[in-house]
Amino acid sequence: MIALLTRDLRLAVRAGGGFGLGLAFFLIVVVLVPFGVGPESGLLSKIAPGILWLGALLACLLSLDRIFALDWEDGSLDLLATAPLPMEAIVSIKALAHWITTGLPLVLAAPVFGLLLNLPDAGYVPLVISLLLGTPALSVIGTFGAALTVGLKRGGLLLSLLVLPLYVPTLIFGAEMARRSIEGLDATTPLLMLAGITCGTIALLPFASAAVLRVNLR
């Protein structure tokens, strides 16, 4: 299992896609928003948590099709399927690798990008916590979507169409938690809901992803 994880991580780093591309995309989204809505700092600081969440979500989405695509093309996915490891474990490892290469850098970069958007001081800690809690769910849900579309030639657009509606609850609770904390409201409920969604998806969704992958490898 650890060997698979390190292999995936090494591949992601060597390909240069994992860390760099997602972060660069995130940065571009953050830079483009003021061009779109105007440079007024009051407005920007108000929508900052939402934009940062949305940017992280889209950056996450961007790298989803790479989770299985390379392994599918060179046939190593078939090898993995016959390995003694259960498919659920493989899927979970893949999701974890995706999170480490994409989700974690986004979480770490979010406070820096928050500066660009004039994020209020009270917002930094809640934003990082909410992203830290929420991005694993994004990776796990994304892995499910990637497993669904793995055999398709032009799966990229379909993948977004399938995954984005599934991201709605995570986005709502994540952004809501950051926003409430900034406004000084009680943020316990969204925090708990976000944590619940993440735990639930980590616990249950790998079974669905594994089932889907088995169908696709049939």
């Binding site: 599934l166 709605v168 609850p169 709502i172 809501e176 969604i197």
Partner: peptide, 12 residues
């Protein structure tokens, strides 16, 4: 997830 979204949206 549709059910979850329903509650999330209500809350939001």
């Amino acid at each position: 997830f549709a059910l979850l979204s329903r509650y999330a949206v209500n809350f939001w």
